[in-house]
Design a protein around this nucleic acid. Structure first.
Length: 482
RNA sequence: GGCGGGUUGGCGGAGAGGUUACGCAGCGGAUUGCAAAUCCGUGAAGAUCGGUUCGAUUCCGAUACCCGCCUCCA
């Protein structure tokens, strides 16, 4: 069995991956706050951890992998959007508007991530709502956890809030490599009069009438951000699980706080053994931000006609622990490459056999070495160069770049196109033979130009004429020729 | 201010203390009525300065520059 090696943020080292239970390898990844369409940066961890998920499924078997990715559906930005809609005259209670907003955002998210070829999270291979849990479905577990933390002296209620007592957890800061004292010296912590210590963070906060709230021992309120992941991971994956992932920006404070809460609430568990963080995304060398005007969503790109596979390929070009730069040039390269793979795979692979073929071992090895997706992609070119067509197709499917279905659709399309081109090849060949004798190529060139304009690739050699319909083949443009 | 990461040929981007990365683009050639596609060949690198070493782009240190987090933006 292939041994995976992963760079564990917790130890800052690349380590052999040994699952707690090979029959149920468990991974948790922080999902989105569902207040709006996912932007391109949101998509990077999704693709990165989808590759890991696929690799784990390959190595341990799909039914032996559990992947949970949450939805944060309680958040001030969601409340703000719902309130804005209400003020704009939308009917219904605020609660209903919040619900409506989170529902539609979750549906968008799934659709957009599906388009990127990301598999849905699953529990032991079974896709379900539970594998994509919503924070609001786990408030009771959060309250229980907070209550336990108060009992153990790791948290305290003050002023309608419950705060985590950071000084009560000795290892606080270990994941992100910071010391509490240094951070306070940095003086960028929110100071609230009711905090015992400026570093203490909120587990529970009171809700006003306009905000969603749940009854709790500390009054009507809502959970702080970090507690949801601790509660859901515990409920769905247990006290100890294998992998916890997310963007590097979550390393501090979110993941640090998750660890503190979980370690203190469940001192006998390990919480997550391996922590993985993907670097951030840039656009043309700069941070994507609304102020720079280079902010866009996944849906924006899809609507521009950029296929999800192209976005995915561009992501895979860069190792997950390096900043990734989204550029127009990379998009072109990705488009060209994928088109080559699709055209050549369709032409030379046996699709039936490809379905029975394992992904290329070189690619598995590349991914097993800390998800070296770039190396994996260069291996695709070698498969192509060595005419290992069935493996190429199987590997493209495995990587989520071109599913088997994509090749089949291309084949069906070509079959239809070939029917449209019936007779044209012979006509062109005849014209060319005549032209060879008369030295007047005008009729040949006219037909050739028309074919190219219709999206047909014209290949003429001394052996004859071949017409290959391209991806943009439009039979309607051939009507005039008939 | 604190903490962390990075700097490779025109572009993207890896691995390895000593042997061609690879891809895209470029250039030369084969082929073609002209093209396209394909094939063959080919130039080009390791931010700067110092150290360790028989030997460093690869290890160590410093400098410069870039980036991220510290502000519930992944």
């Amino acid at each position: 069995m292939v041994t995976l090696r992963l760079t564990n943020t917790r130890t800052r080292r690349k380590e052999d991956f040994r699952p707690i239970d090979p029959a149920d390898v468990r991974m948790y990844v922080c999902g989105p706050t569902v207040y709006d369409r996912a932007h391109l940066g949101n998509a990077r961890p999704v693709v990165v951890f989808d590759v890991l998920y696929r690799l784990l499924r390959h190595v341990y078997g799909p039914e032996h992998v559990t992947y949970v990715r949450n939805f944060t559906d309680v958040d001030d930005k969601i409340n703000a959007e719902a309130l804005r809609r209400q003020k704009a005259g939308a009917p219904g209670t605020l609660e209903a508007l919040i619900h409506q907003r989170t529902e539609e955002t979750i549906a968008w998210y799934h659709a957009d991530m599906d388009a990127l070829g990301a598999l849905r999270p699953s529990i032991k291979g079974v896709v379900s709502e539970k594998a994509a849990p919503r924070a609001t479905d786990f408030v009771a577990q959060m309250i229980t956890m907070i209550d336990g933390l108060i009992d153990k002296g790791h948290a305290y209620a003050a002023n309608g809030h419950v705060l985590f007592r950071v000084r009560s957890y000795q290892d606080y800061g270990k994941l992100s490599g910071r010391s509490v004292d240094d951070m306070i010296a940095g003086a960028r912590v929110e100071v609230a009069p009711f905090k015992e210590d400026p570093m203490d963070f909120v587990l529970w906060k009171p809700s006003s009438g306009e905000e969603p709230g749940w009854d709790s021992p500390w009054g009507k309120g809502r959970p702080g951000w970090h507690i949801e992941c601790s509660a859901m991971a515990h409920e769905l994956l247990g006290e100890s699980f294998d992998i916890h992932g997310g963007g590097l920006d979550l390393q501090f404070p979110h993941h640090e706080n998750e660890i503190a809460q979980s370690a203190c609430a469940h001192p006998h568990g390990d919480f997550a053994r391996v922590w993985l963080h993907n670097e951030m995304l840039q656009v043309e060398g700069k941070k994507m931000s609304k102020s720079l005007g280079n902010f866009f969503t996944v849906r924006d790109l899809l609507d521009q006609g950029i296929p999800g596979e192209v976005i995915r390929y561009v992501f895979l070009m860069t190792h997950y622990r390096s900043p990734m730069d989204w550029t127009a040039e990379k998009r072109v390269v990705a488009t060209t490459k994928l088109e080559d793979y699709l055209a050549l795979g369709e032409r030379f692979a046996d699709l039936e056999k490809a379905r029975q073929t394992e992904p290329a071992p070189e690619v598995i090895d590349a991914l097993a070495d800390d998800l070296n997706t770039h190396l994996a992609i260069t291996e695709l070119d070698k498969l192509l160069g060595n005419a290992r067509w069935n493996e190429l197709v199987a590997t493209l499917n495995f990587l989520g770049l071109i599913p088997f279905k994509g090749f089949e659709e291309r084949r069906a399309k070509l079959t239809r196109s070939a029917a449209e081109l019936t007779g044209v090849t012979e006509r062109l060949a005849a014209l060319r033979t005549a032209a060879m004798a008369s030295k007047d190529f005008s009729a040949v060139d006219a037909l050739k130009s028309a074919l190219i304009a219709a999206g047909v690739e014209v290949q003429m050699s001394k052996d004859g004429v071949e017409l290959v319909p391209g991806p943009d083949f439009d039979p309607a443009k051939l009507e005039a020729l008939k």
